[in-house]
Design a protein around this nucleic acid. Structure first.
Lengths: 131, 131
DNA sequence: CTGAATCCTATGCGATACTG
DNA sequence: CAGTATCGCATAGGATTCAG
C-alpha cells in the first residue's frame, strides 16, 4: 500500500468520527506547534541544551516576546524542559524532553521533503502569479 | 547518527546562512500549508479525486470561503490540480498532483507520530494547567 | 540575563448574502 | 453546483518599556 493510500485511509477514519479535533491528533498537534517558531526552536534545541540568550541569537528574527511565549507553550506541551539556576543574573537552560527528541524523526522527514521539493513549489507559485 | 543529531545539524546549517526564509525550506513550506485546513484537504484528496461539494461534506466544519481559498492556494503551490467540466451546473474536480501525492509520505510520518504521542501531549498540558 | 506587561497592527477565518 | 463579495471578530505576533 502506498503512502498516499494509507493517508487516504487515515482521512476516511477521521471522517467517520466526524473529524472531531480531539480524535484527529494532527489537527491538535498543528494547533500547538504549527505556529511560526515552534519548529525552529525544536530544531535548534536538537543540537543540544541551550540558554535563552543563545536561542535568541541563533534565531535572529524572533522577538523576545515570542521566544518566551513559544518556549512556555512547548514546555507546557511536554516538548521542552526548562531549568533555572538561581544565580544573579539568572541562567535558564532549555533542552528537549524525551518526547521532544522523539519528534525529531517525523520533523526531519518533513524538512527533507521540503528541501527536495520546495523549489518546485516556488516555481509553481511564480507561474501561477504570472498567469 | 540519530534523527535528533541530524535535525540539529540541519538547524546549524540554517543558522549559518542567517536563517533567511528563502534558504530554509520548512519555514516557507509551513507558511503555505501550516494553516488550519491545508493538511486536512491534502489528506482528503489522498483517497482520490474529489468534487468541491464532496470535499465540503467530508470536512464538515470548514466554511465554503476557506475551502475555496485553501484549494486555490494549494493549486497555486502545485499540490492540487483543478479540473472544470464546463457543464451547467459546473462540475469541478480536485486531485493531487504528483508533487501533492509525494507529500503523503512525510505527512503520514507526522500523523503517525501525533497519533502515538498526542495523549502524552494532552497529559503534559493538563498537568501544566493544574499547576 | 531572563523575562513580564502593555500597546498596536495585520490577517486568518467564520457568517452571511449574492451570482452564473 | 461552485463559487464571489463584504463584513466583522479573534488572535498571532512585533515593538517597546519595565522588573528582579
Amino acid at each position: 500500500m502506498t503512502p498516499q493510500q494509507r493517508l487516504g485511509d487515515k482521512f476516511t477514519g477521521w471522517a467517520m468520527m466526524e473529524l472531531r479535533p480531539e480524535r484527529c491528533a494532527v489537527r491538535g498537534l498543528l494547533d500547538q506547534i504549527g505556529d511560526r517558531w515552534s519548529i525552529l526552536i525544536l530544531s535548534a534545541l536538537a543540537s543540544g541544551p541551550m540558554r535563552f540568550s543563545v536561542l535568541a541569537r541563533n534565531i535572529p528574527d524572533i522577538s523576545k516576546r515570542m521566544l518566551t511565549h513559544t518556549l512556555r507553550s512547548l514546555e507546557m506541551d511536554g516538548f521542552v524542559h526548562r531549568e533555572v539556576e538561581p544565580t544573579v543574573p539568572p541562567r535558564v537552560t532549555y533542552s528537549l524532553t524525551a518526547m521532544g527528541s522523539s519528534f525529531a524523526e517525523p520533523l526531519l522527514g518533513l524538512i527533507e521533503w521540503a528541501e527536495t521539493h520546495y523549489d518546485d513549489v516556488l516555481d509553481a507559485r511564480s507561474r501561477a502569479e504570472a498567469a
